[in-house]
Amino acid sequence: MASSQSSLNQPKFTAGDLEQQTAQLDLETEEFDYSKRSQWLRAAVLGANDGLVSTASLMMGVGAVKQDIKVMILTGFAGLVAGACSMAIGEFVSVYSQLDIELAQIRREKMKRENGAVAVIAALDDEKDEKDGLPNPLQAAAASALAFSVGAMVPLLAASFIKDYKVRLWAVVAAVSLALAVFGWLGAVLGKAPTVKSAARVLIGGWLAMAVTFGLTKLIGSSGL
């Protein structure tokens, strides 16, 4: 009698409850996958934005004292190559350091559960198996260099086919402004932040970088230093 009463008091699960739990699990999985994807996508957007602003500012600075199109293009190309190499090397070193830390942590956790030489060998084997899911320094370096190069190509392409000095400067500013707005909007979407404020912040920051570089270079160039 008691057993039958306890069985009646037990919660009953219907097909609707099972479907709801399954849908919730799928939603959590999708959100987790989106979070992982958004991290490297957002990093790529930031890298492209860095290449855009730094190269455009460098070209505007040189353009403040040199009106020759070849000088501006060569300066922008040098900035693209130097910046891409710097980003790649910096990202490679950073990710490799993170990889060493995570591998050491995996080894310590494995050895805590067991003792002896057999545990050491097992920990090294597990480390090899889990290494596939850890960050890849070469991939991170290549992605950073590529993202920087994509952003740096915008001012280069905008200035490459315009011989008139003033028109060329305004073309660079216009192309960079449009790209900054797009990158700011995309970064906000990936980070689930307000799009208008983020785009405006990135756009104003890029304008300030170009204006400061142009103004200071113009000032130093006009003083004869």
Rank of each mutant, 00 (worst) to 15 (best):
Q5Y: 09
L8M: 12
N9D: 12
N9S: 14
Q10A: 15
Q10W: 13
Q10F: 13
K12V: 15
F13T: 10
G16F: 13
G16D: 12
G16E: 11
Q21G: 06
A23R: 13
Q24F: 08
Q24H: 14
L25M: 13
E30H: 14
E31R: 15
Y34I: 05
A43L: 14
V45Q: 02
V45A: 07
L46H: 06
G47V: 02
G47C: 07
N49Q: 12
D50S: 08
V53K: 02
S54N: 10
T55L: 05
A56R: 01
S57C: 12
S57R: 06
L58Y: 01
M60A: 11
M60N: 06
M60D: 03
A64S: 14
I69G: 08
V71T: 15
V71F: 07
V71Q: 08
I73M: 11
L74Q: 12
T75D: 04
T75Q: 03
F77T: 11
G83Y: 00
G83F: 00
A84E: 01
A88V: 04
G90Y: 05
F92H: 15
S94W: 00
Q98V: 02
E102V: 04
L103G: 01
Q105D: 08
Q105W: 05
Q105Y: 07
Q105E: 11
R107I: 03
R107W: 00
R107S: 03
R108I: 04
E109R: 09
E109V: 01
E114P: 00
N115F: 09
G116M: 04
G116T: 03
A117Q: 11
A117H: 13
A122R: 13
A122I: 07
A123C: 07
A123M: 09
L124W: 09
D129K: 15
D129N: 12
K131F: 10
G133S: 14
L134Q: 05
L134M: 13
L134T: 03
P135A: 14
L138I: 11
Q139K: 14
A142Q: 09
A142H: 09
A143Y: 10
S144Y: 08
S144G: 07
A145Y: 00
F148I: 03
F148T: 01
S149H: 07
S149C: 11
M153H: 06
M153N: 04
M153G: 08
P155Q: 15
Y165T: 10
V167W: 12
L169G: 06
W170M: 09
S177Y: 05
S177K: 07
L178C: 13
A179W: 02
A179Y: 03
L180V: 09
G184K: 01
G184M: 01
L186P: 01
A188M: 07
L190T: 10
K192I: 02
P194V: 10
T195P: 02
S198A: 10
A199P: 03
A199E: 00
W207Y: 07
M210S: 02
T213H: 02
L219R: 14
I220L: 07
S223E: 04
G224H: 10
G224F: 11
L225Q: 10
